[in-house]
């Protein structure tokens, strides 16, 4: 319950607050995109784009200042990580430590693909031997047919 209470303080995104905005709309748009990747450090799981917490406001200021100074997205991210650790990024960088995270989709897909290939190959092999044996007993098969007839 306490956690949920703490979360309230952070809610209702304030990034659109006109008082904070950058005058150049292109720069402002870039800052907004960056906000969505930066974690509000004192909140539960929100970006600084969503958060009303004071610290999120400070971080927005930092990002906007740097965007204004013409620093690249990469430089800004590096700056934030140096200051607050990787925790500040909602999308962990590609690094050895995060290899498992980023490799998961590929590993799972390849594993699935290999399993499917094996399945199809075994099917092809047993098809050469003739049809697969009936897994049901005669009584069950008859009952299944009755059930299936409703199709």
């Amino acid at each position: 319950m306490l956690v949920a209470l703490a979360a309230i303080a952070c809610m209702a995104g304030a990034a659109a607050d006109p008082a904070e905005r950058l005058p150049d709309p292109a720069q402002e748009a870039r800052a907004r995109t960056l906000f969505r990747e930066v974690r509000c450090l004192v909140c539960q799981n929100e970006s600084i784009d969503d958060s009303e917490a004071a610290l999120a406001g400070d971080l927005r200021q930092v990002v906007r200042d740097q965007v204004k100074q013409g620093r690249s997205d990469k430089q800004i991210r590096a700056f934030l990580v140096e200051r607050y650790g990787e925790f500040v990024l909602l999308k962990p960088p590609f690094s050895a430590g995060n290899a498992l995270l980023w490799a998961t989709p590929a590993i799972a897909l390849i594993l699935g693909g290999v399993l499917m290939a094996l399945l199809l190959r075994r099917r092809a092999a047993s098809a050469a031997d003739g049809e697969d044996s009936a897994p049901l007993s005669q009584v069950e098969e008859a009952r299944l047919q009755v059930l299936l007839k409703d199709e």
């Binding site: 969505r36 990747e37 974690r39 799981n45 970006s47 650790g85 990787e86 925790f87 500040v88 990024l89 909602l90 999308k91 962990p92 430590g97 995060n98 498992l100 995270l101 998961t104």
Partner: peptide, 24 residues
């Protein structure tokens, strides 16, 4: 699953605090 648990995994393996959020 991995995205949800990864902060725990990193914390347990090398003590680094990371966040996995919507952009990931």
């Amino acid at each position: 699953l991995v995205g949800t648990l990864f902060p725990l995994i990193r914390e347990a393996t090398d003590g680094e605090a990371v966040s996995v959020g919507a952009p990931f």
